[in-house]
């Protein structure tokens, strides 16, 4: 593979896949349906009703 080819690939493909991933992340983060699970995740670490122990006392199989 020539240096020129590598540079061309990096500059073209690299640009588009990074933009596509960025759009994907923003869409995922702002998708209205996801809001409930995000809010409950944010609250989950503060829930005072949660005991400080694993939720099931099962041994790892």
């Amino acid at each position: 593979m020539e240096h020129e080819t590598t540079v061309w690939f990096a500059k073209s493909f690299g640009l588009f896949y990074l933009i596509a991933m960025s759009i994907g992340v923003v869409v995922y983060a702002y998708w209205p349906k996801n809001k409930t699970s995000f809010d409950s995740a944010a609250q989950s670490i503060l829930d005072p009703s949660v005991e400080d122990k694993p939720y099931e006392a099962k041994r790892w199989q």
Binding site: M21, S22, V25, V26, Y28, A29, Y30, K35, F38, D39, A41, A42, Q43, I45, L46
Partner: peptide, 14 residues
């Protein structure tokens, strides 16, 4: 709770 959970996700992938 964290101010914006959405922002934490965008920051992570960023």
């Amino acid at each position: 709770p964290i101010y914006s959970y959405r922002m934490s996700i965008i920051s992570f992938w960023g």
